[in-house]
């Protein structure tokens, strides 16, 4: 078992929380793990990424080599495209559909969508709407984790254990809310994939 995942977003959007959830899920399973993060200057609203590698064998590099990522999981559509050189030919690109516009030359959303649709295996998820529907607007990053979780190859219960460990300090209600967000993301994608098994290119959301 070996999964190389690029997590992408804008500083402050919570990709490190996603990374930590996957990391703790992998530890529950006694897998090897390396996770490189960006700290410091770029965290101030800049493009940020995290390289997350899990495997049942030892992992050498902290960085994923170009062309080797099994999954690009992005919480922002423009950012999902920034790491395409890392994605392997049959890898998945899973992204939130809500743009984070903090630059003057942000491209047209339709153009971004068109570029994403050129990737063979892609999913565009309206995680903001889903998190709103379940009454937790701040959990869209965990919805995205749920949406991408079926491509990671770990049991749902392991992710839930990871989420529990991360949010435990904030109280039972916060844990429950985030587990619900995770499930909502996962269910959405499972429905999407089973319903349209041959047309992944139809963007969801």
């Amino acid at each position: 078992m070996k999964k190389d995942i690029i997590l992408a977003g804008v500083g402050g959007q919570g990709i490190l929380t996603i990374a930590a959830s996957i990391g703790l899920a992998a530890l529950e399973e006694n897998l090897e793990l390396k996770q490189a993060e960006v700290h410091g200057m770029s965290q101030r609203g800049g493009a940020v990424q995290s390289h997350l590698r899990i495997s049942d064998k030892d992992i050498a590099s902290d960085l994923i080599p170009l062309g080797k990522a099994d999954l690009v999981l992005s919480v922002e559509p423009l950012e999902s495209l920034r790491y395409l050189p890392y994605l392997c030919p049959d890898g998945w690109l899973v992204t939130n559909s809500t743009p984070f516009v903090n630059i003057p030359d942000y491209p047209e959303m339709e153009d971004i969508r068109r570029e994403i649709q050129k990737i063979q295996h892609h999913l565009i998820v309206d995680a903001d709407r889903i998190s709103k529907d379940i009454g937790s607007t701040r959990s869209s990053n965990i919805v995205m984790l749920g949406a991408a979780s079926s491509f990671i190859g770990l049991e749902t219960s392991l992710f839930e254990a990871g989420i529990d460990r991360i949010f435990r300090g904030k109280g039972e209600a916060v844990v429950r809310m985030n587990i619900r967000a995770f499930q909502a993301g996962r269910e959405y994608v499972e429905m999407k994939l089973s319903g349209k098994s041959k047309s992944y290119n139809n963007s969801a959301g």
Binding site: V10, G11, M41, S42, Q43, R44, G45, G46, A47, P65, L66, G67, A69, L78, E79, L81, R82, Y83, L84, P85, Y86, L87, C88, P89, G91, N102, I103, D105, Y106, P107, D111, I112, E115, K118, I119
Partner: peptide
């Protein structure tokens, strides 16, 4: 290092031209 060792590698797709820089900014 792969290049230096003469092994080489295959990149994924290039970054589309519309992807603009997103430099850090004041909050």
């Amino acid at each position: 290092v792969s290049d230096a060792l003469g092994i080489g590698y295959e990149k994924g797709k290039p970054v589309p031209g519309l992807v603009t820089n997103r430099p850090p900014a004041l909050c």
